[in-house]
Design a protein around this nucleic acid. Structure first.
Lengths: 146, 146
DNA sequence: GAAGGTTGGTATTGAATCCGAACCCAGTCA
DNA sequence: TGACTGGGTTCGGATTCAATACCAACCTTC
């Protein structure tokens, strides 16, 4: 199978991975959720070449995950912001962060803490059932074709 | 920055992505959660070349996400199973699946349904706060160094 | 006991892709 | 005028992909 054929597969993982499954794309999205918006800042934070940043940002814009909008004229300058579709990736990023915190934090603890504004506590994300609100583990789930 | 330098970064996303951020790795993990365990089945389901399957499986075993164990002798045959560390990736996969379901399902609806055994309902994953159990969106979170 | 099949891989190799360095460009500042 | 800044594009070499072929145990069948 070819990489770009993934988006044609009848599988939501495949279709999502075709958009966000790239090495640097998830790193870009992480920075988006941390408030980074400008081309130069993406480049500086990631330490990768400009062509990669440009190409990935363009793909994310085409996919509707980011939107590119001017924040000044004369000279015109653009920034990249998450769309609703991009914001919907928040659980993905949080799940990845949490897994990394669990298994790669080292003795210094997790590099970043997340505070829930509503309750004021530092939290970890918990995946729950939309129907009964109970936390869900892999063994609690039965999969069947839809 | 080089790709393999990612695992040295003080960022849980970077460290996780260094392990699972590959094109095919997430697809392999998806199949693991669907119960696929044998080399040939991975190969057939993904439709990719054997060398890629072999290389990715080996990396996942080295990373402690899968373990390789014999299911028969004479001739000895192995299968790949999720470790606890691998099972801990379930929220990541579910989050990716849910995002794909939301934005790429098409009119036929999501390709797979997930039933919560405990309550018997088809569900979608909801990310909640570990402290107050409320659902969490991107805007509810404040990030600070840990 | 030779032929062929099954499972689970390695080796090789041309093609596609990635990536970094360098270059480009429009506008502004000194 | 000349330099600088933000935001890219181009290009060639290094890496990675994926297809094909091959290997290695073991079993089955004739």
């Amino acid at each position: 199978m070819k990489w770009n054929a993934l988006s044609q597969e009848p599988c939501s993982v495949a279709r999502s991975v075709a958009v966000i499954g790239d090495r640097w794309t998830l790193m870009l999205l992480r920075d988006c959720f941390l408030g980074v918006r400008r081309f130069e800042d993406f480049e500086r934070r990631l330490g990768i070449s400009r062509s990669i940043v440009a190409e990935r940002l363009k793909r994310l814009v085409e996919a509707g995950v980011l939107r590119r909008e001017a924040y000044q004229d004369r000279p015109v300058r653009h920034e990249y912001r998450l769309t609703d579709k991009g914001l919907a990736l928040h659980p993905v990023i949080m799940a990845v962060v949490h897994w990394g915190d669990q298994y790669y934090a080292g003795e210094a603890g997790p590099p970043l803490l997340h505070r829930h504004k509503a309750c004021g506590c530092d939290f970890t994300p918990v995946m729950t059932c939309s129907e009964c609100a109970a936390p869900i583990a892999a063994r609690d789930v039965e999969v069947r074709p839809g």
